[in-house]
Amino acid sequence: MTTANKVKSNPSKSKLGIDVKDLKVHYDTPDGVVKAVDGVSFSLRQGERMALVGESGSGKSTLAMALMRLTRAPGRIAGGQVIVGGRDMLDLDEEEMRLQRLNEVALVPQGAMNSLNPVMKIKNQLLDGLYDHQVSGDEKMSKEQQVEIVEKLLIAVDLVPSVAEMYPHELSGGMKQRVAIAIATSMEPRVIVADEPTSALDVVVQRNVMQTLGRLQEGLHASIILIGHDMGLVAQFSDHVGVMYAGRLVEVGPVKTVFKSPKHPYTRLLIKSLPTLSNKKDFIGIPGLPATLLNLPEGCAFCLRIGKTNPNVIPWVNVAKDHFIQDCKNCSSYGK
């Protein structure tokens, strides 16, 4: 995008896309603190794709919101660092953070069906983000410029330019999600957070939308964090995968190695639970229920689920190239 006046905090793009260090999101409840995200660390280089998977309630979406610094009360970001473009976003004031959104980190929201303002034309929803990131003193965009930008953004996500004059209710689910992708990429962000971007779409549309998202992300050389519980989609789309359990990352590694030889028992069971065409027997679940996050003790949350003694302290172990797990001696052989 040449016409939108971009203010990048760091003009020399570093190789690092996003660096998350020990991120914690806590919910204060009358019964105690719920640690929805409990010390998550990972980093992504530019152009890399990482997926975060886990059951419902494992903290994936909370993490996504925290990366945008959009955590709402009663939740709060209790600690850690989210470094994008050399700056810790958790240190910025509200106005600085606002300018970072869309410009440096953009969100492709979950539940695309309602993520657009129902009473605004698509073109205005594409443009208002750009307006609000213009440096004061800049001239206003001319009518021709606006039309040109909107057209370019829509064509980039395989939509016809006439969509600009439409309202969200006139679009299909897939088209709406394309508009959401067009908005997210309109300022060429360094990082895209896609929170279950295709959860409401059928598989054919899902594939097309993901291809569009991937193409744009490659063109921008942006890092993308894909949140999802669709393991098949994750396996196809991303380079790296992080498995979350009870608000913590338990295994991180390249998609191929993690899927081929999962090392953490939770990952193993998660992958085993996928139904396949060759195996039409009963669904294989994961025993027990996801951990209650209220007053969760330190150490191995998975041991608590399967009734083993929690060793309290568990180290990160490098099991293969770029492949790390939370190695708990009590449960590591579980479900082999």
Binding site: R98, Q100, L102, S115, D128, G129, D132, A180
Partner: peptide, 9 residues
């Protein structure tokens, strides 16, 4: 939520 993520004023 999506609008806030757009960094609107």
């Amino acid at each position: 939520i999506a609008a806030e993520a757009k960094g609107l004023r």
